[in-house]
Nucleic acid binder design. Sequence first.
DNA 1: TTGACAGGCAACCATTTGGTTGCATATTGA
DNA 2: TCAATATGCAACCAAATGGTTGCCTGTCAA
Lengths: 102, 102
Amino acid sequence: MDLVFRALADESRRALLDSLSAKSAQTLGELCSGLSMTRQAVSKHLAILEEANLVATVKRGREKLHYLNPVPIAQIANRWIRKFERARVDALVDLKKKLESE
Amino acid sequence: MDLVFRALADESRRALLDSLSAKSAQTLGELCSGLSMTRQAVSKHLAILEEANLVATVKRGREKLHYLNPVPIAQIANRWIRKFERARVDALVDLKKKLESE
DNA sequence: TTGACAGGCAACCATTTGGTTGCATATTGA
DNA sequence: TCAATATGCAACCAAATGGTTGCCTGTCAA
């Protein structure tokens, strides 16, 4: 869970997820094009996304195909964000009241 | 948006949000108790959460009350996570097919 | 008024992070 | 076979991060 949050904290990595969401089964080289980063930097980012289970890969010959795995993101939505949705109205009303009373 | 993701990347900060979600209007001292961190460390984390607009504060005398603001989290849920929900089934079917064909 | 309490500020430190360069390995296709 | 291609690995570097300690400021209450 922590790995997922940390993986999502970087804009480059979120961009990679975007890219994989738009086009599946991309190779490392493909994912590099357009980004102003060396291949190795992208490779490291992908390793972090893999570690967090946000990206799955399949080797095909000398290429490595990358796939988005949206499950961890869905889990965060379901298990973590919902906690705060419940608190949402209460918290805001609470704060507003406080601000107005001062 | 990036500030929110980065703020959420740290377990201590998520714990602080949890704490504020459970009990609103806590002071810095209150938020510190239970955590094995100096007051200054907690203060820095709270500053990052404030920067990301996840926590709002009101000064009352020599105390500073902290409030959870769940709106940015809700925005991420709505504007960002939904993108990947759309891709979810497609992506998994896609990957499964690939894995089986190799 | 004055000591105790809540918090802010700044300097400092170790570790992690995001990136680079250089070289090695493995697959492909002419 | 062999050059080109796709990726992996390791060392290195600067900057950001998470934490500390020490001291200062402002407020409360006896």
